[in-house]
Design a protein around this nucleic acid. Sequence first.
DNA 1: ATGTTTGCAAACAATTTGCATTTTT
DNA 2: AAAAATGCAAATTGTTTGCAAACAT
Lengths: 153, 153
Amino acid sequence: MNESVRTKYREALQSQGARMTPQRAAILEAVLGTTEHRTADEILEAAQKIDPTVSRATVYRTLTLMVETGLLRRLDLGRDFTYFDPNYLEKPNHSHMICLDCQKIFEFEEKELDVCEDKIARQLGFERASSFVRMEGRCQRLKKTGSCVEKTA
Amino acid sequence: MNESVRTKYREALQSQGARMTPQRAAILEAVLGTTEHRTADEILEAAQKIDPTVSRATVYRTLTLMVETGLLRRLDLGRDFTYFDPNYLEKPNHSHMICLDCQKIFEFEEKELDVCEDKIARQLGFERASSFVRMEGRCQRLKKTGSCVEKTA
DNA sequence: ATGTTTGCAAACAATTTGCATTTTT
DNA sequence: AAAAATGCAAATTGTTTGCAAACAT
């Protein structure tokens, strides 16, 4: 993880009279020290490996805090859980493509899509503020080799 | 609501050995007899006006049934509730634009967006199967008149 | 008779919250 | 000493489920 992220985190906390704690540090690493999209539960597990005192309540509280300060984005992947996007700070406008078979998540950021959305918004009389795009399909590996799912047994 | 929808419903039910009941009929009307996007709770309320015996459990069971048979689409509007899209049968590919102020939902279907998404999918090596797009912004009325929210008092 | 559907109440699961205690400043 | 943060356990909330009774074929 980029050092400037930690600085940003620290500053965001300070700006609202909040403190940096071992638990918050662990959660920061658990969620932003990876490019993986994780659920609150997975973040709890990862954070506890760093600091076993981290509780589920603190994970939820801290994730909310991070989302509010713009360090993190909540992500709806069309599954049962809410995911968190660790690549948001770096690429605030990216979207997701999910393979229907292996469920792997690919990210993309395409100017053309943005332009297209703006145009549609304008046609509707809107000034677009944000958008969310998620696509599902069959990945390259599946198409090429006929299988993209890692065998677990 | 189009009569062919009722026929489709009836057939979908029959095809899996399921029966048409007063409750299911009431729920059908409650969810497809409007162009409004409703939550399970709103659908329950509307259905009970038609048939007071409709219970919450049956609403959930029936909505699941309708989604499974392709009559209805679950919709994530980025709110706390799951919404159901009554306009899915008519326009299976439409997307949503939501006003940040009045929260009104506008629908659109734009070929250009589809083409753009396909192109991106191809670039990623994917064969796109589905996609979900949601935009938020400020609506025409807000921009023109400075307000789009209905005053409640 | 047999299979389906129902309402009810209980169960569930992700998330939030109240509170006494601990930690930090 | 004051303010903030924590863990725990209980509460909340949208949704699902087990089951006995009601209904349809």
